[in-house]
């Protein structure tokens, strides 16, 4: 079984971070994982993206030309990745920041006001966790508990205080998809 996803948005939105979180959580579960970032000037031009693969078997291509899913944080990323998602794939959209609707009918699309939800939780910085939660509520390459475990690897020292609110944001994303 292989799950793969492209995560894309502006630099600074925590795009790379949730990709790494996903990869780390997968590794802790003993799965094969790859995390492949866009790099170089592309990164500095504003949009950043990473491709994450979580699988039971050794991973062949870490490069996703037709990802099963995409989590998009901004309009540019939406425009870029909507056309390439594989047939019947999943698209998770922050509807607070993206006003356009998906033009493809064959996708499972989640419109989640992630920035609003994160702001209600105290800080729009947690938007990335809300979106990750929404993705994990739809497909479950790994358990939420593993993401919790990975969070404690990332957030240490003073930042450890942020673990709980990150968990809440993650759960808010999961709940949003599940109640639908």
């Amino acid at each position: 079984m292989e799950h793969n996803v492209v995560i894309a948005g502006f630099g600074g939105q925590g795009v790379m971070l949730i990709g790494e979180l996903l990869a780390r959580a997968g590794m802790e579960e003993g799965k094969e994982v790859t995390w492949l970032p866009s790099y170089g000037p592309e990164q500095r031009g504003g949009t950043a993206n990473c491709a994450v693969v979580v699988a039971d078997e050794p991973i062949a291509s870490p490069l996703l030309t037709e990802p099963q899913a995409a989590i998009v944080f901004n309009r540019q990323s939406f425009d870029k990745f909507e056309p390439v998602i594989e047939k019947g794939g999943l698209l998770v959209i922050d509807s607070t920041l993206i006003d356009r609707k998906a033009s493809r009918a064959d996708l499972d699309v989640v419109y989640i006001p992630a920035t609003d939800i994160a702001t209600e939780l105290g800080n729009s910085k947690f938007t990335n966790m809300v979106l990750l939660g929404a993705y994990l509520g739809k497909v479950n390459p790994i358990s939420i508990a593993s993401v919790h475990g990975a969070l404690s690897v990332f957030l240490t020292g003073k930042k450890a205080a942020l673990i709980e609110v990150n968990k809440k944001a993650l759960q808010a994303g999961v709940d949003f998809v599940n109640k639908k």
Partner: peptide
């Protein structure tokens, strides 16, 4: 190549 250099895996 840059792809192997920039990616992460266990």
């Amino acid at each position: 190549d840059g792809l192997i250099g920039q990616m992460m895996e266990p």
